[in-house]
Design a protein around this nucleic acid. Structure first.
Lengths: 345, 345
DNA sequence: TAATTTCAGTTAAACGTTTAACTTATTTTA
DNA sequence: TAAAATAAGTTAAACGTTTAACTGAAATTA
């Protein structure tokens, strides 16, 4: 492996000159530059990261932290975000170091090794993490950017899903298809993402002049799983047998809803239309395939890396909050409301 | 951030002593060690990677490569392997650099950046990758270890699932419950893992003296998905209406099988027992929960990192092939065969 | 013309660590 | 008791870069 010294010797200049040429510093004459570049090519020289790192006090690495639970969730949501981040990092010549922390991170837990050993220049946090951990990281004076989580302290740049807009979009889509009696199903309603989807639903209903009815929503399940979607659908139909469409706060619950409807012999979308949120793989293998609101996971990863790149230039350069927009995907689980609409005289 | 100098000053020793203590060199007396360790704790000192790297000429990184498809598969199989690897890497003070390659990697594709920039000391390959890529990596003279893939060139250390044993275990379990008419369902039978499971099935049948019947297996689906499990179950029951148990080559197909049986009003396990292979999350939320053969994904990640650690000490130290053993998990989709067994007179 | 500025480099220190070679004091051996 | 071995450190060089400060020559300015 050729080092800067070999190049210097070959080009008959000092190592400083080589360094300056590599960094395209204009102090060096074109002729010298040419000579040095020739030597670099000849020796196939690539500056060693280690040497650079030592003097620049930069590692060229960015840490990517999420809880173990999040990483293992069956729909590879965070996996896709990670992939986007890793891809974008290439443009900035950064490497991503991925690690998980236990979901119950507490006073006794250790910070990820790459923080303790100072092997990163910045930290990307994906999804909800204990805020105690963020406090701990804060001590290391590292730039922090967050994706898919709104931390209690709002001083960080974050990338979030525009859930409210997604809620509006989904609901308006149903309304345009003449649905009025639209059920909303959720779990974990205190989660900001879920709540915002609900808010979007209400806003769209309000805007369309449709009375919001308590009997049209079930949000008391503890978690947004398939099972709870199934349960919620059951509860909803017991409350209100007239719903013509159901908006589930995510695809997992929507799948549970469809399962329940199938068992009850209720045809989707003929009898009841169903729409979800997230856009997961499984949607495609449902019958009918699930219409949903696509969350651009990969793009979120890209965006958070862009924020990180800004921070790496200047730690306090940005506190941007980015809302990534979502997109309606109509697949087949929604149709025009078949009930006769009684128009006011 | 404390450096080795700060620790040396605090403990009133030379920096060399600190280094020796950190490396647990026995040249240093217990008392001095204690003092130094106290200083290390007090200052929260962690050796800087950059400094280390420069002198050791090692990067302290290991690359982890898989295809994008594999990483995104809905059951987070490789995610778990990665987690095991990352965890084990901590013991050797290595960092894992994860990257994906396109599934159609070809002559025009680039190798991962960390190889081109020589930012790793070794490469772990997870799952099947184009062998052309392995040839390319070979040129960089890096140690290579492989997990869950048996490459055409058998010169590498690999960690594999003991599929044959798993096939035997599952089948014997059914046989012990008095099943004789046991169907086997697979897709992609040319895949070594799948084929070995089938071989295990046959071996167990042979050993029990049960005649293997062509009408007892369906392996012509192109892929081991739920849909194909559904289809295969249909085909199987058309071929042979007397099966009392079905061994599906993986859980995805088993889930499809159960779906088909449910639709046909065939009760599991009362009418037909079902067993899968892999042990995925979804098994638990089935009704009944799926009995299966657990593949220790996390442990596979640990094992491959152990192999890599050996290689990192000495590139040619090992060509070990490790078969990780699998374990029967009985959940509820298998029961004693209810058919009257006619004993030979 | 003399002083000043610009140009095109070079010198040398610094980054944080490891480790071979050395030192000094103590213990063992013959 | 003198020589040899051991124990417990220390010294200093090396790893590959970057960059502030310097230098000497040439060009510009007043």
């Amino acid at each position: 492996m050729a080092t800067i010294k070999d190049v210097a010797k070959e080009a008959k200049v000092s190592i400083a000159t080589v360094s300056l040429v590599v960094h395209k510093h204009n102090r060096i004459s074109p002729e010298t530059s040419k000579r040095v570049n020739k030597a670099i090519k000849k020796l196939n020289y690539h500056p060693s990261r280690s040497g650079r790192r030592l003097v620049s006090k930069k590692t060229g690495n960015v840490g990517f932290i999420l809880t173990e639970d999040h990483f293992l969730r069956s729909e590879p949501f965070y996996t896709r975000i990670f992939l986007g981040t890793e891809f974008e990092a290439r443009n900035y010549e950064y490497y991503i170091l991925l690690t998980t922390i236990p979901s119950d991170y507490n006073e006794k837990s250790h910070l990820p090794r790459f923080i303790l050993e100072k092997n990163i220049d910045g930290v990307i946090i994906a999804g909800k993490v204990p805020s105690y951990m963020i406090d701990q990281i804060e001590k290391y004076d590292l730039p922090i950017a967050i994706v898919d989580y709104y931390p209690p302290s709002n001083e960080y740049p974050v990338v979030l899903i525009d859930n409210t807009s997604g809620g509006i979009t989904a609901t308006q889509f149903l309304i345009k298809k003449n649905h009025k009696n639209i059920g909303f199903i959720a779990g974990d309603i205190d989660h900001p993402s879920i709540y915002d989807r609900f808010r979007g639903y209400k806003m769209a209903m309000d805007a369309a002049g449709i009375q919001f009815s308590e009997s049209n929503y079930v949000v008391d399940e503890n978690y947004t799983s398939r099972e709870n979607g199934y349960n919620a659908a059951k509860k909803l139909l017991e409350l209100n047998n007239d719903v013509t469409a159901i908006f589930a706060c995510n695809d997992a619950m929507a799948i549970g809803v469809m399962q329940y409807l199938k068992e009850k012999g209720i045809a989707v979308p003929k009898d009841i239309s169903v729409i979800g949120f997230d856009d997961v793989e499984a949607d495609l293998s449902l019958d009918p395939p699930l219409s949903t609101v696509r969350v651009p996971k990969y793009e979120m990863g890209i965006e958070v890396m862009k924020l990180m790149a800004e921070l790496l230039k200047d730690k306090d350069s940005t506190k941007k909050k980015i809302l990534v927009s979502v997109e309606l995907i109509d697949r087949g689980s929604v149709t025009v409301c078949s009930e006769k609409i009684t128009m006011p005289a």
